[in-house]
Design a protein around this nucleic acid. Structure first.
Lengths: 306, 306
DNA sequence: ATTATTATCAATAATATTGAAGGATTTTCA
DNA sequence: TGAAAATCCTTCAATATTATTGATAATAAT
């Protein structure tokens, strides 16, 4: 036999009022229902919690300790139930994103979102497009942000922006118009094999460039940026990862003619995903912010308007 | 509609195992019972807590937060229930005692008891015999210790020892055999009017002494003792309140011939009191300890035996 | 005596659970 | 590969269990 919440509720009310009859009225139940519920509770515990002194039920030493334990817990449970029934903004959203997005977009989104919805917690996982997609399929994350293409049928994808790859350098030497094939024999630093950024770039130039002089391959964008500083090298990376440095004059966006290398940023989620208000709000919020951040021009303009 | 513990139990099991079928087996229920229970929980909360991804039920962002809140509380409730079902020694005993007992006997009893039963809490209330008896009648305390007489029919009384009143002084001047009437004109300090100790003493000597020279009345035994020190005064108080000081030689027990002033110490409780194991243990324990403390001779002997 | 209160019991209402049927998806194996 | 089997959840009506009622008795207070 196990205690029920109902029994606890009735018990607490009886403690509060001291009379079964009052409680019965308050709870719109018959007096015998209350009496039997209390008796059942005592049977389950194996001992009385009330002394029947005169017509009153007075907590005894056991009941008193029981009350002290149960009362705060019952209240807390009620609060939780109320919160979840009434609050739209309570939950834990698990987000997954691929490398570039994790590093350069997610921090802004998460900080901004959490300040608007303090009751929502977010956990962030990193992975490449394939891994993130699989997490969606397995239900390991609620929503994913990836660069690259997704074809799985049970995964819904929404284009949330365009990722632009820029040729970047720290040296002013390249800071004049030119064509991509003229740069082929310069020293290039690229991401490692398997990286989406690398693949897209190489695929894009394969018709125009015979052989690219790749002199260094690194696993992280930040590593590339560190090496790039003060050296006469070139790289091709996502514009969002170097925007700040270019603004500061640390790097140059090399003006390569006829170079327009783009790919989509996607938001993905499972087709069977239940769209809670919470989920929808997060999706709406992050899509909006993504678009702002990815369209720099529009983003800067909106700053002035504000 | 309200959530039930059962629904939470099933919910937690489903979260743990991920499959309704497993949970149904574990809980020895049909699988449809589990399904409907979860559905009911979701209806009550107003939103799903699981995403039905493939055949699995995967917690969604709402369910995850709900789980995080409910899980520890459910465990705690289970622990409490178990504790109260199985532990004999869990409770809060409310004890009332009259002045002398509160000051000189209860501290020892409570400390000693609590070291034997760490899960039991004790609250102590002070009052005169009449007040303590009334508290018993109203169920405001579980057990009382009083000096004096109790006649109420719904209060059970057990004699637990004899209170002896001693004539005490700090001056060696009185440290020789004498009769009470010879001391009547000395300076007496007594407790205030209404005090049991005072009434018993005055009633006891009323036939032997014409007029007692009461030069000071004080509300507390400890105040009397403070005044007594280094002064040529007398008082008549409970032996247990001055035993230590007499042992230390600070006060003398004046050897008054034919002076044998006693009254009973009583333990009282309500006739309808449910005797939980806890209650019985406390009663047994404190009776034993009281007897030891009140029979000084036996008490000291027992010290040596140990 | 009358009122107020709790306890108890059988009857009944409400709720939880079952068992069978169905749908959707994955696994098995020819 | 593709059809059959297995797995797993959902739904629904039937049933078992549990909670609640209404009437009645018992007890103490006014």
């Amino acid at each position: 036999m196990k205690l029920t919440l109902r029994q606890m509720e009735i018990f607490l009310n009886v403690v509060a009022s001291g009379h079964l009859t009052n409680v019965a009225k308050e709870m719109k139940l018959s007096q015998s229902a209350i009496s039997m519920s209390i008796k059942e509770l005592e049977t389950i515990l194996g001992k009385p919690v009330f002394d029947r002194i005169n017509k009153k039920l007075v907590l005894n030493e056991v009941g008193r300790a029981f009350y002290k334990e149960i009362d705060p817990i019952y209240k807390k449970l009620s609060d939780i139930e109320y919160e979840f029934k009434n609050s739209e903004n309570k939950g834990i959203i698990r987000v997954g994103a691929s490398t570039t997005i994790v590093d350069y977009l997610m921090p802004t989104i998460i900080c901004s979102y959490m300040s608007s919805y303090p009751d929502v917690k977010i956990t962030l996982k990193e992975g490449n497009t394939k891994e993130i997609t699989q997490m969606i399929q397995e239900g390991a994350i609620d929503v994913g942000f990836v660069e690259g293409l997704v074809f799985e049928p049970d995964v819904i994808k929404e284009k949330i922006g365009v990722d632009e790859l820029w040729v970047v350098s720290a040296s002013p030497k390249f800071n004049k118009g030119c064509y991509i094939d003229e740069l082929a024999k310069e020293k290039w630093i690229l991401r490692e094999e398997g990286s989406g950024t690398r693949e897209v770039f190489l695929n894009y130039i394969k018709d125009k460039v015979d052989k690219l002089n790749i002199f260094l391959e690194l696993g992280h964008t930040e590593s590339i940026k560190s090496i790039l500083v003060n050296r006469e090298c070139l790289t091709c990376i996502s514009k969002i990862s170097v925007e700040n440095e270019i603004k500061e004059g640390k790097f140059y966006h090399v003006d390569v003619k006829n170079f327009d290398c783009k790919r989509d940023f996607l938001m993905i989620y499972h087709k069977d995903k239940y769209h809670s208000t919470l989920f929808d709000k997060f999706v709406y919020f992050s899509k909006k912010l993504m678009l702002q951040m990815l369209d720099t021009e529009q983003y800067n303009r909106s700053k002035y308007i504000k």
